Simulated scan of single mutants.
Amino acid sequence: MKRLKLTSLLAAVGVFVLAGAAHAAGESVATFNNVSGDIGIARNGTTMNAVSGSTLFVSDRIVSGAGSSAGIVFKDGTQLTLGPSTDIQVRDYAFEPKQAKFEFFVYLARGAAVYSSGMIAKLSPESVKVATPTATIGVRGTRFIIEAD
């Protein structure tokens, strides 16, 4: 009987530890919709191929090959469409309306992307930033194309 209680206790502790590790890793912030060609997601030192339904996390870097494109939809409805030979990273993202916590920051190292604002730009426009090697853009709710060499 005591052995069973100890095993149950250890199993419960294991569940809490695993839940904590999953929470520490963070929740996904976006999902790929349309993926065409070679799109890679670099995460924690590994690279995986993106397919429709793949999820993105803060710090993920997305690299599209020549002739490739992808549509990404963030939790707040923000849409990014990546063109060929694009390298972009999700640097920060938060969409927690109940806590009034909003953040959207992506860095476009090279290539081209079409941005279409979602709820973050409507609720907290000062929280949206898109940066390139030569500029940082503050978005105030709009749709635009951005390119970086």
Rank of each mutant, 00 (worst) to 15 (best):
T46Q: 11
S124H: 15
I88K: 07
D60H: 00
V106T: 12
A19Y: 10
L80F: 08
V114G: 01
A94T: 06
I41C: 03
T86G: 01
V73L: 06
A25S: 13
L10E: 05
F32Q: 11
S54K: 03
N44Q: 09
A12T: 14
S127M: 00
N33Q: 15
A19L: 15
A30F: 11
L9E: 06
Y115G: 10
R43K: 12
F74L: 11
N49K: 10
V13C: 04
N49I: 03
I120R: 00
I120P: 11
T81I: 07
I62Q: 03
A50E: 08
G53I: 05
Y107I: 00
A25G: 13
N44D: 09
G83Y: 15
T47P: 08
A109V: 13
L9D: 04
F104P: 09
N34H: 12
N44S: 09
A12C: 14
D87M: 05
A42F: 10
L80H: 04
K129R: 14
L56N: 07
A50V: 09
D92S: 14
G14P: 08
A66S: 14
D60F: 00
G111I: 05
D87A: 03
S64Y: 10
D60R: 00
R61P: 13
L82P: 07
P125C: 04
T46C: 04
V73D: 05
S54W: 00
E96G: 02
S85E: 15
T81D: 03
N34K: 10
G45P: 13
S59N: 12
D92Y: 01
A70E: 07
V13H: 05
D60M: 00
G40S: 06
A12P: 13
G83C: 10
S85F: 12
Y93C: 13
K129L: 10
D38N: 07
E103H: 01
A121T: 06
T47V: 08
A121Q: 10
L9K: 00
T46H: 09
G20H: 12
L108Y: 11
S85T: 15
K98F: 00
S117K: 04
T31E: 15
I120N: 01
L10K: 03
D87P: 08
Y107F: 08
L6S: 09
F16I: 09
D87F: 01
S69W: 02
A66M: 07
Q79Y: 04
K75L: 14
L82M: 06
F105Y: 08
M48Q: 12
T86K: 02
S68E: 11
V73T: 13
I72P: 13
A11Y: 11
G118P: 15
F104C: 07
L123E: 11
A11Q: 15
V128K: 13
A131L: 08
L56H: 04
A70R: 00
F102K: 01
